[in-house]
Design a protein around this nucleic acid. Structure first.
Lengths: 102, 102
DNA sequence: ATAACATGTGAATATGTGTTCATTTGTTGG
DNA sequence: CCAACAAATGAACACATATTCACATGTTAT
């Protein structure tokens, strides 16, 4: 991997920071496979739609998810393959057996 | 991707949250390619070794980096391929051209 | 043992941020 | 146009956490 320039680093960190909150992460996971409306996310995860909307705004700004309006409802979905790729890699990292030796 | 169980989610979020700070991210990037000592990280990134040590402790606890003592110095390196894989994916995500249309 | 160096740690503070509540904007159907 | 619903937003608060400073621990050489 190339050493990323300084400007990319804050952008990188932004993306990770957004995924680093359990509520936001659950929201992202909820719309990974198929587009899903805001209030459906809210009811599924048992959150207020206000809170979901707040988080989706941040996720959308970072292009982690993309929005698609259908009538009154707005459907959200993962922006691209890299997002699911990152999540898959991290899950492997967790699954990996680890000795207690540091 | 399988839907990750609830316990994995907080573990996942922890990992992302740790990478979501620019200082910690720079530290991780600094020891991605080759093991590097604490004070070398500190001087390279122009940080106090105390701060670097604090962050390394968190990164080590999450098994993002691993420690290796050689004499007085402790060398740190990325724990496994998944970490670099995640970073590579995220960099691709950033590099991807994006329209301003939301 | 002691000095010199490298790393680790605890407490305190300043800053960032997730959540709630109230309100507003946008959209469809009567 | 108006009522009903979905989504978005702003302000305020509570809480988490990154950083600094002072000090402790661990390691090597003399």
């Amino acid at each position: 991997m190339q050493s990323p320039i300084e400007s990319s680093i804050s952008e990188l960190a932004d993306l990770f920071r957004l995924l680093g909150d359990t509520t936001r992460l659950r929201i992202v996971l909820a719309c990974l496979d198929t587009p899903i409306a805001v209030n459906e996310i809210a009811s599924t995860l048992d959150l207020s739609s206000s809170l979901v909307s707040h988080h989706l705004r941040l996720l959308r700004a970072a292009r982690i998810v993309k929005a698609d309006r259908h009538g009154k409802q707005v459907f959200y979905a993962a922006a691209d393959q890299h997002i699911s790729g990152v999540l898959a890699d991290m899950l492997e990292h967790i699954a990996e057996p680890h000795t207690d030796a540091d």
